[in-house]
Design a protein around this nucleic acid. Sequence first.
DNA 1: CACAATTATGAGTAATCACTCAATTGTCCC
DNA 2: GGGACAATTGAGTGATTACTCATAATTGTG
Lengths: 218, 218
Amino acid sequence: MPSEPRRLQPRKQPRQVRAELTRQRVLTAAAHIFAEYGYAAGTTNRIAERARISIGSLYQYYPNKDAILAELMTRHLHSVRVTGTYRDQSDLPDSLEDIIRMFVRTKIENHLDDPELLRIMYEQAPRTGELLDRVTRQEQEMVDDLRDLIDRHPEVRVEDRDTAARLATAALGPIVHHLVAAPNSVDVTRLEDELTAMITGYLRGSGQGGGRTTPRSA
Amino acid sequence: MPSEPRRLQPRKQPRQVRAELTRQRVLTAAAHIFAEYGYAAGTTNRIAERARISIGSLYQYYPNKDAILAELMTRHLHSVRVTGTYRDQSDLPDSLEDIIRMFVRTKIENHLDDPELLRIMYEQAPRTGELLDRVTRQEQEMVDDLRDLIDRHPEVRVEDRDTAARLATAALGPIVHHLVAAPNSVDVTRLEDELTAMITGYLRGSGQGGGRTTPRSA
DNA sequence: CACAATTATGAGTAATCACTCAATTGTCCC
DNA sequence: GGGACAATTGAGTGATTACTCATAATTGTG
């Protein structure tokens, strides 16, 4: 039974520098606490303590706990979009491999900052209301971007380009989460190379035809 | 500050059928509740209510909440191992594609039962102590299995087979979680085909050599 | 049936949580 | 300085949680 949607807007606009600073301290502290304890166990009291402000101050600027995570998420999504749009028109590479590499690299870069926090945000964030919508929309944009990219590229030989775009996009996120945040992580340079090879190969349709050679029922 | 390791063993062995039945009711109810509410919000009282037993009975057989999830996880891991080992020696297919297909299919099948629960278990389970160890070990076994499989196959042309095995395995789990449990899910048959193509292509080293053609620093 | 062992019950407890609010302190500007 | 407003404080509140334990019901056994 997901709780009803909650207000996410701050209850009060800061008018002094002091206040803006407090907002920022909360955000920074929350990022650390959520990354370390997870969302449920990352209590508002702990966040306030880490930020070295009182719990009351925290609630001056964030109406509830969800709002804090929502702002962290918003900032992340924004940075994703900003990083992503530099591949607009002009400097598009020619080869499919290089296009995919840009795609992969962007995604990896977006997760290098604070992998643990990102994982918490995607996995444990309350899947409800506005926040969920935003994330869903952003994912759809990514799929569409990739779809556009591969759509007009001759090297791509896949039956269903829509599914291919969905799969490739859906694959990328979780893998990066999983591997960048892993204890003994793979080197990111190598990760970029391998993921690029993997997706490029897949889109080129390197598997000789799609024909299945093993019967489904074992 | 993760909590210290907790006992996961039941505090009392059931001696009557009645008791064994109660244990089972708890487990079934917990699977539903966790899948529906998540781990944190899936309270023990709710589980007891769904199982139509009293909260006291629940704690007769499970010393704490973690132990319930641990047993669900154990049962899942066990079934994975059982399903996985049928590809031991004898009936190994010849072509790389078919081998990978078996691998992929097994993974997908393991997640078809209760995708939501599985996602909760992998994403929200307390990452601590014995439970974490078990999961880590099982993942390592999967990597090793795949490594063995591809190691003696001539079709595989990848520089570093170890990394390839790690990547392919690490990729599979999250993708399957993500897509099988997704709202408008991809058809599982298609998913199997695409994933097989993707991984097979990757292992064959279809990308013309590993050489990077775009300079890293943009 | 009698009696003990096992199992079931659920109100109660201590801890923890998100969040409030009356009081205090700091800042701005004349 | 002084008054108005902004910002900060933290003890407190009510809700929720995991878990306990004294008591009652059920079962196995002779």
